[in-house]
């Protein structure tokens, strides 16, 4: 029996390993990307195995009242959204080697971050429910709209964002279940390109989601070391 990691594609082959997959402990994680055991599943046997997981068409986007409000909605973005919009444009300027412009966009991004109001439900349980919501309805809806429109850029955003959300969801669930022990005496790394998060002493050689090299990962400093 074989089991495939839904994040990085690592294959655990029972016939090549000492311990059958089913007997591995629940705290076992993917040796390549650190994904939880629960994120492994048997390989897809159908020819269309390129289709990303979770795009079950029966589950796809419920019909929604469409576009009418979309343009208007875009012009009424919240401070938190505008902060991300401006830090994205700052990165866009950096890629074009426009450092002065990047700095100005960062200044506006910092302003919007500072005026973003607190969330009323600021706890882990609420955070997990938001992740769950993205995974069950948000991403399938974006994915299906992007597929229909033939928008491959947005489909790529879905592939990466969904995997990153699965990993974050899994790490926060683990924290809720086990407490902080699994994070002691080790580091948390975030891929500066796609946001993939990894727990370990050193970052993975290649990002399992977007495939950039290890030096693109940032170590998350603790409060005292910062």
């Amino acid at each position: 029996m074989k089991y495939v990691c839904s994040i990085c594609g690592y294959v655990y082959d029972d016939s090549a390993e000492g311990i059958p997959f089913s007997e591995l402990s629940d705290s076992w994680v993917c040796p390549l990307c650190g994904a939880a055991k629960s994120l492994f599943s048997p390989p897809k046997t159908t020819a269309g195995s390129i289709t990303p997981a979770r795009t079950d068409p029966t589950e796809a986007a419920p019909a929604r009242t469409t576009a009418a409000h979309s343009t208007e909605e875009m012009h009424r973005l919240t401070a938190g959204e505008l902060s991300a919009l401006c830090s994205n444009l700052a990165r866009g300027c950096e890629k074009q080697y426009k450092n002065e412009e990047a700095g100005l966009f960062r200044e506006i991004a910092a302003y919007f971050a500072a005026v973003t109001p607190d969330e009323p439900d600021g706890d882990l349980t609420h955070l997990l429910s938001l992740f769950e919501n993205d995974l069950t309805t948000g991403y399938p809806a974006v994915q299906s709209a992007a597929q229909t429109a033939g928008d491959r850029g947005t489909q790529r955003v879905c592939v990466w964002g969904q995997k990153v959300t699965v990993i974050l969801n899994s790490l926060v669930q683990r924290y809720q279940r086990e407490g902080s022990a699994f994070l002691r005496n080790t580091q948390i790394w975030v891929c500066s390109v796609c946001g993939f998060a990894y727990v370990g002493n050193t970052p993975p050689e290649l990002c399992p989601v977007c495939k950039v090299p290890a030096w693109k990962f940032d170590k998350i400093e603790g409060r005292n070391s910062a």
Partner: peptide, 8 residues
């Protein structure tokens, strides 16, 4: 627009 609505 159909993609933007879901993305936003």
């Amino acid at each position: 627009d159909s993609v933007l609505t879901e993305s936003y």
